[in-house]
Design a protein around this nucleic acid. Structure first.
Lengths: 227, 227
DNA sequence: CGAATGCTTCGATTATGGTCGAAGTATGAA
DNA sequence: TTCATACTTCGACCATAATCGAAGCATTCG
């Protein structure tokens, strides 16, 4: 007669208002930091940390460590579907909810992320490289293909030198504004350096923004077309 | 920034182990009494009553008063779908659950329910009448059609006499074993009386069981074919 | 190397709510 | 009417867990 406690566990995870707000925020499909999620839930960072640990232990969330940030996202499509069905039923009996507002618009286009390009341009660059089969992306792992290596060398990047470094050449980095992956690692740094060296882009003062010149814009669009 | 609390409410309802066990038991699609649900949950009747009131207030359950019993069932298809998605996710990370065992086999086939036929035969009878468009069933309301009225009179039931009574002619009654509706009301009583008068069936001693004779079985199958 | 930021862990407080005993209500049976 | 069954309500107890302050760890920046 002993009934399994599993659906109760999932329910109780969703049942706390703070966690429910976090999950709702993550339903947008973008990864969020612990601090952001704490704000969404209206609780302190300590409490949020506890909740996030529970959600992760319950399999609802996955965590990506990114520098001193921790980005949380829904772990599987199934989690989203489950939440959607609950939200659908809940919506059918009352309360509506509103979407969180947009973010700072200035840095969304292009900015430096430690040492590589991030923002819309960063995401577009990686997307384009993957679409052109110059980088293979399986999950979070990036591998430069032979075609990619040739392309990189043709651009004047010293690939052999990159290989000698202990740092990974290709890494994914979760984008602050786009919340999708862009290219990090030594190759990502090399690309940004290239853009700046060529005079296509330059860093803003007292900001992480990257400003592309007109010729830079044009060259970037030719190098990394959008499909 | 105030996020709606609705999915948290639903989650917390599902999140309690006792309530989760009740909901799981109801996922079989059959209505269950408060006492049965208390047993499934492993709690006392008082506690179960409190839980059931909450689940009903949350819109997950509906209640049907039937004599001194209260039958509870999932309120909508959407509830079942929601629970199914949660169970699917929960199952994908661990515990399995087992189905509750079968019930007393003796009375399942046919028995008297106060004054009318219940059990498998009772359910089959109503199903057949509805399928033949002699009774229209909208929700819990039953209406005898013109064709149904003619059929009833052809069988020798005094429909005019039934109409004079204050009792409702057609009523649904939730079946103890089948947990689906069968025909109650004065017409239900008239049918059972007819079966007994014709010698097709008789009541068992000290039991609520109804035993059909061979000719009764045959006549019943002809009168109420299964589609 | 500090200093600052992002997050976790620990510990204590507090409150929500699950639980059951006892008593009360409603329905059916005798 | 009286008794039995099915269920609800009330009240009190108790355990779980949500919360936050303070301290600790990890990472980046200057």
């Amino acid at each position: 007669m002993k009934e399994g406690p599993d659906i109760a566990l999932i329910g109780s995870l969703i049942g706390d208002p703070a966690r429910a707000n976090m999950l709702t925020a993550l339903m947008g499909g973008r990864a969020l930091t612990a601090t952001e999620l704490a704000t969404h839930a209206g609780i302190t960072l300590q409490t949020a940390s506890s909740h996030l640990a529970k959600l992760e232990a319950g399999g609802l969330l996955t965590q990506r460590k990114q520098g001193r940030h921790r980005y949380y996202a829904l772990s599987e499509d199934e989690v989203g579907l489950m939440l959607e069905s609950i939200m659908g039923f809940a919506a059918s009996r009352g309360l509506t909810r509103h979407r969180p507002g947009p973010k700072d618009p200035a840095l969304r286009k292009a900015r430096v992320c430690y040492n590589h390009l991030a923002g819309d341009y960063g995401v577009r660059m990686l997307d384009s490289l993957v679409a052109a089969r110059q980088i293979e992306m399986t999950g979070d792992d990036l591998v430069l293909t032979d075609a990619g290596q040739a392309r990189v060398e043709a651009l004047g990047i010293d690939y052999a030198a990159l290989k000698k470094l202990r740092r990974p050449i290709c890494r994914t980095c979760l984008d602050w504004s786009e919340r999708r992956s862009h290219l990090a690692g030594s190759l990502g740094e090399a690309f940004l350096t290239l853009f700046i060296d060529k005079g296509w882009a330059r860093r803003e003062q007292n900001s992480r923004a990257i400003r592309f010149t007109d010729t830079g814009e044009k060259a970037f669009s030719e190098l990394f077309p959008q499909y």
